[in-house]
Amino acid sequence: MFVLGVIYENCTGCHLCELACSYKHGGTFNPLLSRITILTKPEVQTSVQVYCLQCNDAACERVCPVDAIKRDKSGAYVIDYSRCIGCRECAYACPFGAISFDFKARPIKCDLCGGEPECVDVCPHDAIIFGPEEKVSRELKRAKATGVAYGIYGGAESPYRRKKAEEAENFLREIWKRNEGLEL
């Protein structure tokens, strides 16, 4: 089973996923029509990602009075608009707020782009990942473990970022060396 996961530590809040999503689903750039929403937390400029988790036991599917929500072979719960009556009950039932309304009072939700999610493709910082369960699970563990090992969760003096910056300094010197005698 393929799943979509978010490593929230990697997200910098650039909103490119929202623009890609709204384009993919309607040819327009509008974050309000995106199936994934990035809420920016103003105090520290960190972000919370709101997106469909494609629950195994999905509240949206259960509450739909006309059975318009069905799981497709990519694992996504997809709304069949030929049945949908636009009651938006699914949006109210979703425990994660992952179903939005479009401007015609219809619910819209993530359909995993039929198995090739565009948001995963555009994300510049590998914050959104998609793949077999065991791979996503492994990636998540690795990201969290790196954080814990380098103390990015709490602890004032974190060696993690200093080390990364030092590596950047060194890499820049490497580039200078590489460019010595460059003929342009």
């Binding site: 910098t12 809040g13 650039c14 909103h15 490119l16 623009l19 520290v44 400029q45 960190t46 510049p124 910082h125 003096e157 974190s158 970022r161 200093r162 990364k164 910056a165 030092e166 950047a168 300094e169």
Partner: peptide
């Protein structure tokens, strides 16, 4: 040095629609 400023960093951010995260938090 860049590494000295990195010690105070708790995250990275950028402006709308930018993939570069050039700004430190």
């Amino acid at each position: 040095r860049p590494r000295d400023f990195a010690e105070f960093e708790v995250g990275r951010t950028q402006c709308y629609s930018c993939p570069l995260a050039c700004k430190d938090v």
